[in-house]
Amino acid sequence: MKVLTVQYGCGAMCLFTAEDAVDELEEALSEAASNATFALIYFSKSRVDSETIIALMARSVPDLPYAACSTAGELTPNGAAEGQIMIILLPKDHFNVAAAPMRIDRTRRLDEAAADVATFRCLFQAEHEESESSRNFAMCITDGLSFDEEAVAAALHWGLDDLPLLGGSAGDGLDFNSTCLILNGEILTDGTILLLVNCDLPLQIFKTENFEPTPQKLVVTRSDPERRIVYEFNAADAAHVYADVVGVDPQSLSPMTFASHPLVLRIGNEMYCRSIQKVNEDGSLSFFCAIDDGIVLTVAEPTGMARSTADVLASVRETIGEIDFVLGFDCVLRRIDARNRQVTHKISQLYAENRVIGFNTYGEQYRSMHLNQTLAGVAFGIPVATKEAAE
């Protein structure tokens, strides 16, 4: 069977395929979507293009709203994978979803963007008030190569007020050429898709990271904040200084190096990753997150990814009970670091056992912050009626 379908206790479904099986996917989707209110689609650009996704949805479920994005890997019901087409169907029995494109970038005043977000939120909350049996939250998908994620995080946090937010940046494998976002058949350029969700399932929004700071400090002494490029650390060539500190040859710097030796920024009592995307021909370093002159970065070492991931999922189960499924946004650098430390199987198994479905990102949005090397997710518990029937 080229297309696999998994149904969860609440009625949510996940369809996925790693093969060129669009025709089979179309047939399976038509049959599975009768009770769906919204679809989330994550796809590998190495397998399909945006036009194929748009045509698939138009033929199969022309009236079903959906949001889609390209990825740097997929989290399937069978664990972590690459080269997949995944379609997650949210059931109308438990979810209400509204989605809108948001123009949020550095060229626009943040208060204007936040006002648009606030208007969208107010309309949604007026129609779907929170109660003892339902909660509202927000998700976003943004262009992982736009350099605008910090502006997006600020505007969304401002406009959403106290509504919790999580999300991820669309990816392009490890090519870093272009990403793709689609909302209801429209391709968005340098955009953000904001989804507001009302759900009557038990739920918990969470994040987990696994790194410890070392004594090594790097000061950004010359940079291009607009393009997130650092030319110099400590008044010397950025790539050479970084390579010397982590003990590798500058010519061997790679995504595996960056995943194994992340740089972190202290904000208050918290440490946040400012991960390196790639080394450039001139010896500069491109970053996934915002940087600027004068920032002091600390070299960190990832530690215990499998343990920290298992611990946070165990904590989630203590809060909401048995996990029905998790929508996850997992940094691509975590996947690379897991492979480097030979714990890919453990992480993949943890995701499968806890029903984590989603995609590998170029960055994660969690509440007011844009992050790297983090798993951010929203876990849904078993529906009350299902629990009562089981008892």
Rank of each mutant, 00 (worst) to 15 (best):
A58M: 07
R335W: 04
G171W: 00
K217Q: 12
N78F: 10
I53C: 04
S223C: 12
T5A: 13
L265M: 14
G83L: 01
T214Q: 00
A113P: 02
G167E: 00
L285G: 08
S44L: 01
T17R: 07
L183M: 10
I141F: 15
P202I: 05
D63E: 13
S275A: 15
T71M: 09
E51G: 07
V97C: 13
H94F: 09
D93Q: 15
P77F: 00
Y231R: 09
Q251T: 12
G304C: 09
T344W: 07
E127R: 09
E281W: 09
I85L: 15
D237Q: 12
S260A: 15
T221M: 11
A33G: 06
V356E: 04
E127N: 11
A12T: 08
A259K: 01
I88G: 01
G9E: 09
L188E: 03
L160R: 08
G191T: 01
Y242A: 06
N234A: 10
R103G: 12
T208D: 02
F329H: 05
A352R: 15
I182Y: 10
L183E: 06
A81G: 03
A39D: 04
V296T: 12
D63V: 02
S252K: 10
E74K: 00
A98N: 10
V220M: 06
G191K: 05
F211M: 14
N198K: 05
G191H: 05
V299L: 13
T386I: 14
L145G: 03
E74G: 04
Q84G: 00
P383C: 07
C122W: 06
P262L: 09
K217G: 03
E27A: 13
M271V: 09
T5D: 02
V356G: 02
I276L: 05
D161K: 13
A151H: 14
M305E: 08
E391L: 12
T37K: 07
A72K: 00
L181Q: 06
M86T: 10
T5C: 14
D93I: 04
S368G: 10
V316A: 07
D111Y: 09
T386P: 01
E129I: 05
I229Y: 11
M13L: 11
F43N: 04
Y242W: 07
G159D: 03
Q216I: 11
R135V: 14
D161E: 15
L174H: 06
T298S: 10
A58S: 14
R228G: 03
I291M: 06
A154I: 07
L89M: 04
A81T: 04
I323R: 08
T309A: 11
R47Q: 08
A314H: 11
A243E: 05
L64T: 04
M86H: 02
V356S: 10
P101V: 03
E129N: 09
K2T: 12
L313T: 01
T374R: 08
F124K: 03
N234G: 07
V241W: 02
L75P: 00
A314E: 10
P65H: 07
S368N: 11
V152C: 08
F359M: 05
G159T: 03
M369V: 05
E132D: 14
E27Y: 06
Y231H: 14
V326I: 15
L15S: 03
I85G: 02
T257D: 13
L333S: 13
A12S: 14
M1E: 11
M102A: 06
N136I: 09
